[in-house]
Design a protein around this nucleic acid. Sequence first.
DNA 1: GAAATAAAAGAACGATCGTGCTATTTAAGG
DNA 2: CCTTAAATAGCACGATCGTTCTTTTATTTC
Lengths: 200, 200
Amino acid sequence: MQASPATTKGAATRDSIIDRAYQIVRKEGFEGLSIGSIADSVGMSKSGVFAHFGSREDLQLSVLDAAAQRFTEHVFLPALRERRGLPRLEAIGRRWMKWLRNEQGGCPMISAAIEYDDRPGAIRDRVIFYQTRLRKELARAIDMAIETGELRTDTDSDQLAFEIFGVELAMHHDSRLFGFDEAIERSERALDRLVASYRS
Amino acid sequence: MQASPATTKGAATRDSIIDRAYQIVRKEGFEGLSIGSIADSVGMSKSGVFAHFGSREDLQLSVLDAAAQRFTEHVFLPALRERRGLPRLEAIGRRWMKWLRNEQGGCPMISAAIEYDDRPGAIRDRVIFYQTRLRKELARAIDMAIETGELRTDTDSDQLAFEIFGVELAMHHDSRLFGFDEAIERSERALDRLVASYRS
DNA sequence: GAAATAAAAGAACGATCGTGCTATTTAAGG
DNA sequence: CCTTAAATAGCACGATCGTTCTTTTATTTC
């Protein structure tokens, strides 16, 4: 579930394959990801690409892992520099939006959730794992804002995490269909209103 | 863009094809919809199915139209029985959730939005058309609640429509990955809080 | 009921799919 | 440098894809 540093030649090309596959998934979704298209994209043969993964599903899982890791790196880890409480929570929300913009294609994790939410299997299982983890970390950041006294003590952190998640989903949706500028403006207002409604 | 009553034999089977295609799209998404799979499902030949539509894209557009029409019938039209203002607005929100549950597979409109949000073409254009219309109708219901004095006069109806849409997206997401019961509970609370924060 | 028309089937097309198997090339270890 | 192992290519497979064309069957229309 985590990327290891590329020491050997094989691991290096494997990383580059995942990187290209990641780009394709953003535009075509996980079901649109084919071994042939990746092979063309990286200038290798189909079997050369295939040999790095036991199956297409393994490749898709690797892309999913990469998506989760990048999200953590770009959204959660930088927010840790803010002090516990509202500053950190708001940093998460804002960085999340920026992440959704910078993903010129769609967000792979959201695509995966939609594509596999009713297809039992390894992919769906891992999507649930990552989504559960994300929601827990979000709730933890909220709990800290309760501890600092910035949010009301009767705040249901899972509920607020759910509501924040909804804003981010709407942000993703609108920015891709109606344009980024309007979407981020609405999303920021929505988040501000949301946090304000829980303020102590 | 609308379904006509089936007078001739051909139109009747065409409707049944769309109905089956609709079921498939809920489970497999629009990209997972193949003419062969529909043919098997309705017990026809591939070419027999194909003859009813000039192309796969035309078939996909027909399914999209069907989805929009069913949504209108199940969510918006029944809500018109409630009096203008908050009752109607809340009826829309609650029926929307029930709609998301009854769609045992995913909601085709949400699937289409994710699958085609960065693939220019007829499908994306029509998705944008329907999403724009939905958001406008939602904003209109909100405007009525402002006129009745139930919501504050400085309420930005487009903003609230965006926020409600986010709750419904989160509802769709959570109910499919984490289970319906918890999702609808959170969604109802979220909607209540949202409306309350705009109350006059 | 015959003639005209619509609906469905059948077969074939080039393309692409994921995957296995066998060579060949390239990098790593001593 | 030589040997061994890893990485990649090449080829073939059965299956499925959307689409076109031709033929057969079913449904209207008079």
